[in-house]
Simulated scan of single mutants.
Amino acid sequence: MSNKITKLFNIQYPIIQAGMIWNSGWRLASASSNAGILGLLGAGSMYPDVLREHIQKCKKATDKPFGVNVPMLYPNVEEIMNIIVEEGVKIVFTSAGNPKTWTSWLQERGITVVHVVSSVKFALKAQDAGVDAVVAEGFEAGGHNGRDETTTLTLIPMVREQLTIPLIAAGGIATGKAMLATMILGADAVQVGSRFVASEESSAHQAFKQVVVDVKEGDTQLTLKELAPVRLVKNKFYDEIQELYKSSPSPKQLKELLGRARAKRGMFEGDLKDGELEIGQIAGLIHDIKPVAEIVRDMLKEFDLAKQEVATF
């Protein structure tokens, strides 16, 4: 299955495993790369020395390409970027910041750069910044969403209409049928997050993985737009956010409630009541925890069957 994205990353299939905080360690990234897709380490949940360790372990676990996702809102981003260069990582996905800040610097060091956006406006800014590809992430996603709540189904064709560089679709994609749908709409590949949270190799706590499997339609909600919009499972912490919103809180008050390491407590340590539990709407279609290789195999099989079904219409 060869196209612009598989050639860009030198991978077998046009699927990217999202670099999610507290979920995407070296085991998940290497298993994804070994399955023929692009694995990403989630640097957002790693101190610099921890990231270096994960990169080194990933290099030992796979001889296939892998990358690092770097949310640029973190204060130690310069140290993170230097470690990526020192360790010879050749693919970086940037997010939550201005792509002009690091794109040229990374590319001058032989690194392929992809930027994550949530709107046509920011997709064009990323293209103007010279990135090699763009991830357009719809409102359905679990991580840092845009404030406009544009769904994947509408975002992808609108971005495709304006963009000339390769386009990766994200948000609400966990099946082969969804992969085919977004590629028909103009995407060259898909980025998958939530489905890989519920994998055996994910670094998420087992209790959180089970929550993902148990989530039903309506059990998640996009919130905290004043800080960085995230989609959360409705739990005690989520209820406290909603109660605070009744008093029209300032961003400072929301930060005080969020506190420190709330996402780590929820997703990595398994605090299902007071932790921040980020997951996409597509969790309602995730019913089991499986090895990465099996998840990829199932997606590709469904993708091929869906193509055959579409051909008969």
Rank of each mutant, 00 (worst) to 15 (best):
L272C: 09
G130T: 09
H54M: 09
E78C: 08
A169D: 09
L124I: 12
M81T: 02
A61Y: 13
D188H: 09
V310M: 12
E309L: 13
E302G: 01
N76Y: 15
A174Q: 08
E256I: 14
Q242T: 12
V292K: 05
G218C: 02
S30A: 14
K64G: 02
K7M: 06
T94N: 03
S32I: 04
A311S: 13
K264T: 00
S104T: 14
S118M: 05
P291C: 07
M1E: 07
N69W: 07
G25S: 07
T6H: 12
K7F: 05
L232Q: 10
I83K: 09
A29Q: 11
G138Q: 01
R27F: 10
V292Y: 07
W26I: 05
T112Y: 09
A181T: 10
I282T: 03
L51P: 01
K255N: 13
V85Y: 12
A29M: 12
L51M: 11
S24C: 04
A61L: 12
V134Y: 04
E78D: 14
L300T: 05
T62Y: 01
I173T: 06
A96Q: 12
V120R: 02
G110T: 03
A136D: 11
V211G: 06
E217K: 15
L244W: 14
D49Q: 14
V211A: 12
S248Y: 09
K255F: 00
N145M: 10
K90L: 10
R297H: 12
N76Q: 14
